[in-house]
Amino acid sequence: MRSDVPVLVLEDAVPVFEASGLPPWPMRLSLMPGDCALVETRSGRDAAALADLCIGLVPLRSGAVRMLGSDWDRLDNRRTAALRARVGRVRQRGAWSDMLSAQLNILLPQLHHTDRSVGELMEAATSLARRFGLPGLPTERPDRLSEADLARAACVRALLGRPALLLLENPVAAEQPDLLPPLLDTMARMRERGCAVLCLVRDPAVWRSFERWTTHRLQLGENGLVPIDPAGDP
């Protein structure tokens, strides 16, 4: 059963430009359970900053950012951590720690926040990894994996567990079109369960066939977060 509480709300949120590089304009967005927003961004840095804004990592000049009804600015450290545990994210910069194997990188958030057994987590992660075209969970260090395998592993990590919100920063590059069908398929299942998706893309051409699935289309530019009408004009 879906909740009536929006998963993510940007309520006239004005980010501090110096801390994020995001344009200091009021941003508005409301994602209900099952919604999917496609946001075109100018750069990977903008995409990362907007995703950071959604999880309360960017200070605000005014307005509020709420997830599942909770204002990030009003939560204590424990509640903030617990709420962030409900976010699955594919990120471009700083995504992998070479201190750990790729397998541990993938499992770390679930091992930290849940008490699911290691065996159960491994099974779920391996099943997801196979769905994304990996032979199993990669045991090498991330710096020894190819870009394509890292992109697959990033999807596995983001989708593992039951995230309430998915933040996908350019999850599929133009040279990896084979990653799109399993991602869309898994996203569709998660949206049916009530997960909201915010997909931040630099190259909208890759997502052309996916546009009809989206509930919101926006563009992040100099004027802030601007809705795009169906004709494609901001």
């Binding site: 450290n77 617990a82 962030r84 976010v87 990120r91 700083g94 930290h112």
Partner: peptide, 25 residues
């Protein structure tokens, strides 16, 4: 070396974003 690499490579921010407190961990 390890924590310096995490801090300069952005992985520390990534951990915080995952709800993992680097101080405790």
């Amino acid at each position: 070396t390890e924590l310096g690499a995490l801090a300069t490579g952005g992985q520390l921010r990534s951990l915080i974003g995952q709800g993992i407190d680097p101080f405790s961990l």
